[in-house]
Design a protein around this nucleic acid. Sequence first.
DNA 1: CATGAATGAGGATTCATTCAT
DNA 2: CATGAATGAATCCTCATTCAT
Lengths: 212, 212, 212, 212
Amino acid sequence: MEAEPETRLRADARRNREQIVAAAKQVFLESGPDVPMEEIARRAEVGVGTLYRRFPDRGELIRAVARDNFATVLAEATAAATEEPNAWAAIVRLLSRSRELRLSLRLALMSPMARAIVSGDPKTVEFRAEMMRVLDLLVTKAQAEGVLRKDVGSGDLAVMCRLTLERLPLDLEVSDDVILDRVIGVMLDGLRAQPGSPLPGRPLTSDDLSAR
Amino acid sequence: MEAEPETRLRADARRNREQIVAAAKQVFLESGPDVPMEEIARRAEVGVGTLYRRFPDRGELIRAVARDNFATVLAEATAAATEEPNAWAAIVRLLSRSRELRLSLRLALMSPMARAIVSGDPKTVEFRAEMMRVLDLLVTKAQAEGVLRKDVGSGDLAVMCRLTLERLPLDLEVSDDVILDRVIGVMLDGLRAQPGSPLPGRPLTSDDLSAR
Amino acid sequence: MEAEPETRLRADARRNREQIVAAAKQVFLESGPDVPMEEIARRAEVGVGTLYRRFPDRGELIRAVARDNFATVLAEATAAATEEPNAWAAIVRLLSRSRELRLSLRLALMSPMARAIVSGDPKTVEFRAEMMRVLDLLVTKAQAEGVLRKDVGSGDLAVMCRLTLERLPLDLEVSDDVILDRVIGVMLDGLRAQPGSPLPGRPLTSDDLSAR
Amino acid sequence: MEAEPETRLRADARRNREQIVAAAKQVFLESGPDVPMEEIARRAEVGVGTLYRRFPDRGELIRAVARDNFATVLAEATAAATEEPNAWAAIVRLLSRSRELRLSLRLALMSPMARAIVSGDPKTVEFRAEMMRVLDLLVTKAQAEGVLRKDVGSGDLAVMCRLTLERLPLDLEVSDDVILDRVIGVMLDGLRAQPGSPLPGRPLTSDDLSAR
DNA sequence: CATGAATGAGGATTCATTCAT
DNA sequence: CATGAATGAATCCTCATTCAT
């Protein structure tokens, strides 16, 4: 799903690049986006030099990891929209299954620095646009199906997805997944078309989430 | 609401301490928990030396900021429980008003390092215990009132509070607050005692959230 | 002769600063302007940190050394102009005695990088202006005295001074000083008002040497 | 004028070698002898690998560039001695025309490191010997012609040539060439057999300039 | 007791050189 | 043989922490 960057690389160089991104993702998750580059290189079983040849600075690496995640998230969203029998099922799957995505976007959440880097990336904008396109569709359809309450928009849905990506602060007895699944359950119930209390404001659209 | 540490300090020393914690909170929020100590000192209009006299190392400072936040959060929770006419109203207020707390606990969420430091602090355990005590009470009462669905526990409520503390990643057109208020609305509807779909697992209790 | 930078520094800090500049001058001369900062720090008997506190980067240090040299050169020029009985004698002394200055300005001659840094410094401009002021005076007076040929200007003199600052490439049997004194002798003879062949172009003035 | 090294190389290999030396000369001049090898390779439109095949290390490359310059300088000196009608004319041409050589030897002047490498090269010794042979001849003849003052030797002449190779520090309004031509004019006048003041010491011979 | 200087370990980054393709 | 990738040592620079003033 990635595009041009690694278009023509010698076979081994490409493999290296992938190893590095994978290692970085892992290490960032474990220890935050400030881990020594050397640590990342070690995990990727590469010399620091190689890492730097591929990613001129930490920012570039962060961007690469983020893009990689975007691709995964988008793929899952598209799959849900495509494979599920109806839109509501897709939404349920998206929120629930995003458990598998939880590991991903957390990167951008960590340090303000990382946040800034990712936000500044044009690819981020692209990703967001595509993601919202998918969500828009789902929301419209699910509302037509009569299952989704009318006063929510794709923007609201996006925010809920985002929230479930959160890493809960501590090592708990119960796993993050179990816990979040319950919260998601509550949210899904809250999303159902029912007498429920009206939400403040108006449905958030994809436009509401455009940066700035 | 702070406790013993600064029990007996000369007036000016106490003022220093407070300035430092305030500056640290601010700076941590802006630039993450890795900002140079010197930066914090500058903001607090103190020399680094003074900062170090008060907080022997960065960890101590992070702990102090966290404790300060705990105090605030707890105060708000207690106030809600006390002042609202019924438990459900208190819960609504807690979730909604936590908007005012949003700025607070984010600290612990930033770097894995900060997380570790805060978790390791006995005060954190104390805080959590007290907080859960309040929530337990609210949940029980609200369920007795017949408004809160029976299959949620104080643990579930805690997690939802926590989620609303999240800083959304980007500068959006619509403010974080507005957005989160809508999600909270959905959650509250989902929390109502209604035919809604059963949640997975069993109600989370305060014990389920004990660390480790 | 240096001005504000070290205006109010604690006694020891000031001493450190001076030690560093002295060490840097020495080391730059020995090994060029690319020597490891650590080497300079070692020579100055300071930690690298201290060096960096005083001179945020290598450029700043180079600038400081250059300014220090400017002061020395200017002092010598002024002294020559003041103390010698007539302008010709001052010129002779300037060219000959610049032997003592030889060690100095070589810095700027070394790497293109160093050159760039020094040229970009406003203090360099100031220095040059003052220096040319002195030379202008000397040239005018010496020509009035009838000793200096009429077709040279202060610019020409400046260039000759500059050339004598050159470090001769190799370790020779005969010292650089002896050798250069002879060249200077030839130049001085060539500068005398005499039938000698006319020089190409017109006398170089201080303006001709203005940068750009 | 180069000798054995590339005696038998395939035509394209030789071309490569020449491109590299040319690029290196250019780049050294622009940015000093510490430019990344990769930069040189790029300019020569070769891979680093190729560069390293030809010149096992940076020193070797510097040496090659220096030797190349030596050849040029020597050729010019010989031409002057041969083609000019008399020795004085040859000397004048040598000093003046060395304008064309100015670009050359500056290399050795840059960093102490480069200096060391070049000095250590046996070819440098050879070059110097040949050069001094030519100068010796010129000096003797020019003195016999009665034009050159008696108290200078070939060593003095060599030093003057060297000085005119200097790059003047800054971007001036007037070009380096014009300026240096005037200084050379002064020197030439000073070199004329005339009552001028006696030079210090004794004429420098080629021996005086032997290294060490 | 406050201050800001000094220290030095640690992490980022570059680049000479080697080596697989 | 040419190429460009990989390596890692060397150097820059920052910042937590200590200590003299």
